[in-house]
Amino acid sequence: MISPSIADRVQKWDLSPTAPLTPLTTFGEIHKRIVFYYSTHYFQYLPTLSVLYPDFETRLANWLSNVPDDQNQRLLFELLPRLAFFSREDFEKLHQAAFDGPVARWIFESSRLSVSDPELDKKLSEQAHRHTWYCPLSDSLRINDFHNVNGIGGVDYRPDWRSLARFGSEAAILDFMKNHQDIQGPAPLTRLVILEDFIGSGSQSSDTVRFIQRISKKIPTLIVPLIVCPTGAQVWRAIESFPELTFSPVIELKESDMITAGTARDGSFAGRIADLAESTYAAVEGDRAASPRPYSAFGFPGHVNISLGTGSLVTLYSNTPANTLPLVQHSSNSWNAIFPRSARIR
């Protein structure tokens, strides 16, 4: 799977006096970890299934060759298995965690159910399956997968709210929810759950916020990102001040999970990656043919502090967010990405 040139480099690095920054390991062990992650995760990466891209081992060799010196090649090599790569199977579990966690708690609380009620399970299931409308925030989230892994059916339409905000009618949406029926008869949809696979800075989804806010004044609404970065969580928690709008993520990343311009340059692995992101940014950006991408050395700008960028280390099997470090996901005439992002607008 890994080309001999990679294996040769790894062997040379382990013979050198410079050890990995990862404690108690060797580059050979990191190599084995990458091979394992390829067999379980990396092979699923959808954008590179296109004939436009070479196979993984070629992309890895090209990615390392972006930087000429061994020191920075070793840093990139060590960064790869530290990326949080979420596979399709991971997302199936996240869909289930969303339904069994934030969604179930919210329905329980908003329906004013009691744990002492002997029919609690029946009533909770009734509310979750017949009277709650589950939709994606954008077309990035695979809403059909959410329904399938949780055994949810009964609602024929599952539009994304980014599109509804652009083309939809508030009156038509409320009428649909009020008059909804399933095979058992009238089943009005009395609450709305909006899911998203990943929220980075929260600024892209903010275009849809006003529309959701208007709906939430009339329909209790829950926003559930499967993964959210700190700036995105901050933005949505400010929006949560609306009384009928609740924000409850499945995985909320911490500031310490990010690498930004504000990362301490103390010789740590994170600090050295921050230095590398800045020193290679001119090459990553290239001839600016994709302008305004890649936005900054640390990815799509943070909504709260636009100078820092989000600095995410997240990759999804379906795509890599623009909030992730560009040296991972942006290709140009002078840089080859390891997980090239499929941009919505080109």
Rank of each mutant, 00 (worst) to 15 (best):
T260D: 05
I143F: 02
S3E: 15
R265V: 14
N333E: 07
E252R: 12
A7F: 12
E244I: 09
V51D: 12
L316S: 06
G267T: 07
L276A: 03
S279I: 13
F298T: 00
P321M: 04
R74G: 11
R288H: 13
P23N: 06
A337K: 00
G28V: 05
S248M: 08
V10W: 09
S331H: 07
P159D: 10
W63G: 10
E119F: 14
P118G: 12
Q71G: 05
S116L: 15
G311E: 00
I199T: 04
S334W: 08
F167W: 13
Q96V: 11
V314R: 08
R82S: 12
K32Y: 08
F176P: 01
D8W: 08
A171F: 10
N336M: 14
Y37A: 12
Y157L: 13
W106A: 01
H303E: 12
K93D: 15
L245P: 03
D160G: 07
S279M: 14
T310N: 15
N336D: 13
I6F: 13
D275P: 08
H129F: 14
V10I: 14
D287R: 11
W133I: 06
A283F: 11
S114P: 05
R130L: 10
L124A: 09
L24D: 15
I338P: 07
A98H: 00
S334C: 07
L313C: 10
V149S: 06
G200D: 01
L308R: 15
S163E: 15
L120E: 03
V235L: 09
R105N: 13
S318I: 06
W335N: 07
L76Q: 04
A337L: 02
G200E: 00
G154M: 02
I219P: 04
L164P: 01
L79K: 03
P23Q: 11
I34D: 04
Q96E: 12
F211N: 11
K217E: 15
Q96I: 12
K218C: 13
P230G: 00
D121N: 14
L113R: 02
P230Y: 05
S216H: 03
D257N: 09
G271W: 06
L141W: 09
A233H: 12
V51F: 09
S331T: 07
A274N: 08
P326R: 01
P81Q: 04
V51H: 13
F86C: 02
T324N: 01
L64N: 00
I183E: 14
P301A: 01
G202E: 01
I223P: 09
S169K: 03
L21A: 14
T324D: 02
A104P: 03
P188E: 06
P188L: 03
R59C: 08
T22W: 12
R59L: 11
E78I: 13
M258V: 06
F85Q: 01
F211S: 12
D55P: 07
T132Y: 06
K93G: 12
D90H: 02
S318N: 11
R210N: 15
